[in-house]
């Protein structure tokens, strides 16, 4: 019963739909924080598409750098400098037209390029015979971050093998560093509160 469901196809449609819907959400929302949250979901879904396509490394990087890093930075930046004129973004008609022109042109070019490759248009006749190559994956990097250097096993020079250290400690401790830096950024970014507090005599 379960085998009858085409899991791959189902997930593809799911991720593609969520990516598109939340991308539209970014467009039609005027609050920066909501936009950022929509963008998180949209980028996360496209990371899912990368995983489905077998590009695990790109998917992992998409999650770590865009979803994890850049957007958290954006949200924090907005929260720290939250002022009304930066929080709400109104787009006027001229900007809509201009962005539709530019974005639409890019979309056309991409669609045209994607559909011009004939192999991509026709599905494989015998799906059973499709072999999935062992792709370059993020596994060795991820394993090294948990302290296990799998590439140690392929190293024949015993001296170099001794020098292969796992990156568990930096991976964990850097989170502490980021927390401290965030506290520092928050401290530097809140001038008014301190003054108000001092007037109150705190």
């Amino acid at each position: 019963m379960l085998a009858a469901i085409d899991l791959h196809g189902f997930l593809f449609v799911l991720f593609a739909l969520t990516a598109c819907v939340f991308a539209a959400g970014v467009l039609f929302s005027s609050n920066i924080v909501r936009m950022a949250f929509n963008l998180v979901l949209s980028l996360g879904s496209s990371a899912g598409l990368f995983f489905l396509a077998g590009a695990e490394f790109v998917g992992a990087m998409q999650l770590m750098i865009y979803v994890g890093g850049t957007l958290v930075l954006l949200v924090f930046g907005v929260m720290l400098t939250a002022q009304h004129r930066f929080l709400e973004m109104r787009t006027n008609a001229g900007e809509w037209v201009l962005s539709l022109l530019v974005g639409g042109a890019l979309l056309m070019v991409l669609l045209q390029a994607a559909f011009s490759v004939s192999q991509w248009n026709t599905p494989y006749a015998q799906r059973d015979q499709v072999e999935i190559d062992e792709s370059k994956s993020a596994t060795p990097i991820a394993a090294a971050l948990t302290g296990v250097r799998v590439d140690k096993l392929e190293e024949t020079n015993p001296r170099l093998r001794a020098g292969k250290s796992g990156y568990l400690m930096p991976f964990v401790i850097v989170s502490m560093h980021l927390l401290v830096v965030l506290v520092g950024a928050a401290y530097l970014a809140r001038p008014r509160m301190a003054v108000r507090q001092m007037r109150r005599g705190g």
Partner: peptide, 27 residues
């Protein structure tokens, strides 16, 4: 000041953590 002290101490302790790691670095 007392109001800022928690943030400043966090920064000092965070920097000290880094300094401790520097003094024991082997890589």
């Amino acid at each position: 000041s007392r109001y800022d002290s928690a943030d400043i101490y966090t920064l000092v302790l965070g920097a000290t953590l880094g300094l401790c790691i520097m003094s024991a670095a082997n890589h």
